[in-house]
C-alpha cells in the first residue's frame, strides 16, 4: 500500500462532474483506491461516495492505493487532483 497527501485546488471541490471523472479514472485500475477525507475513508471508485463526502476546495486529502498497479493508480490520482483536473 502506498499513499500521498494532496490539496484539492478546484474552487468548488470535488463536485459531481469532477467526482465522476475521478471515479471513472480510478475504476480503470485494478488497485483499490481510498481517499482519506477528514476522518472518513472514501471509496475513490464510487462517485456517490465522493459526492457524499463533500470534499471542498482547499481541503487536504490523502490518497491510498493498494494492488498490482498501485504505482500507476496513485500517480494518476495525484496528477488529476494537483492539476485541478486541467480546469
Amino acid at each position: 500500500m502506498i499513499s500521498k497527501s494532496v490539496k484539492v485546488v478546484n474552487e468548488n471541490g470535488l463536485h459531481m462532474r469532477l467526482a465522476g471523472i475521478f471515479a471513472g479514472e480510478m475504476s480503470k485500475f485494478k488497485s483499490n483506491t481510498v481517499l482519506l477525507v477528514r476522518n472518513n475513508r472514501i471509496n475513490a471508485k464510487s462517485i456517490m461516495h465522493i459526492i457524499a463526502s463533500c470534499v471542498k476546495g482547499g481541503t487536504e486529502i490523502t490518497i491510498e492505493c493498494s494492488g498490482a498497479d498501485e504505482q500507476e493508480a496513485l500517480a494518476r490520482a495525484v496528477e488529476l487532483i494537483e492539476s485541478g483536473f486541467g480546469e
Binding site: 459531481m16 462532474r17 465522476g20 464510487s46 462517485i47 461516495h49
Partner: peptide, 16 residues
C-alpha cells in the same frame, strides 16, 4: 452535457 452523463455515472456507481 456532463450533468446528464453524471446521472449515468451515478447509476453505474458500484456502491449504488
Amino acid at each position: 452535457a456532463k450533468i446528464l452523463e453524471g446521472h449515468m455515472m451515478m447509476l453505474a456507481d458500484p456502491f449504488m
